[in-house]
Amino acid sequence: MQQLFNGLLIGSFYGLVAIGYSMVYGIIKLLNFAHGDIYMIGAFSGLVFLSIVSPYIGAGWPALILGMLITMLLVGLLGVFIQRVAYRPMLKAPRLSILITALAVSMILYNTVMLLSAGRYRAFNVEISSESFYLGALRLTETRVVLIVAAFALMFIMHMFITKTMYGKAMRAIALDRDTCQLMGIDVYKIIALTFFVGSALAAAAGIMAGVYYGTIHFYMGFLIGLKAFTAAVIGGIGIIPGAMLGGLLLGLLEAFGTQIPFIGTQWKDVFSFAFLILFLIFKPNGLLGRSESERM
């Protein structure tokens, strides 16, 4: 039961990052290596914001929620900026070039933060009670409850945004056929920019939540989660938003229960989830929610 809760919580972080990954892949067929670093930048910007405002309004929930919104906005804009400078000129270039560009962006973000944070772990200080209470056999803290509720709320909002609004419809349409969308009068570049904005904002939110959950952040945190988010996206079916959420939750659960198996243990956690990625690629390459794809890209 405890593992179920932990798995869902970690899984919801994976899911939030995986959404951005999956959306960008769906819309411009780019594996955005920098997405994990965006998550890391989100965590660091949240920390910077908190350290600025905490003398005035403390570092409790109000500051945290305000910080999260502002960070989401700023990091979202950063995502749009990166898209405009680095990816948009490459949209017509061969696939290899845009992949290398994404890698370059990731290196720049990662090394900048490494230099700025002097390569050290930073404490993510918040003033939230860490008292635990029990719900049946389940040990909970206020933080964990709020985090999991917030994560699911974000996912729900995202799902509504994609399925019920005009913009969401445009995104889905572009993922199907970009050229036709252009002919139909959709401003494709604007929608791509919006996709980057939303994806980056969600990753930033996940970054801050991870900061609150773990208590420390460091510049290396984005690397593995980028990998996990990709795995989550593949499990759910890449390009499919509900799939990314489902994949993230599932991966979180797999890890939580996988580490309970005596032979595997925590040090093999990442090896375990990578093995799942390979298994999925072999047996179910379109993911759980994906339709079988007839045309090859």
């Binding site: 594996l31 290596f33 992949l99 990998l227 990709f230 990442d270 990578f274 690629l281 390459p285 890209m297």
Partner: peptide, 16 residues
């Protein structure tokens, strides 16, 4: 599957 999946799978393999 797709050529560009290789990029991220090799990235994972390197770390693993």
């Amino acid at each position: 599957l797709r050529g560009d999946y290789l990029a991220i799978v090799t990235l994972g393999f390197g770390e693993i």
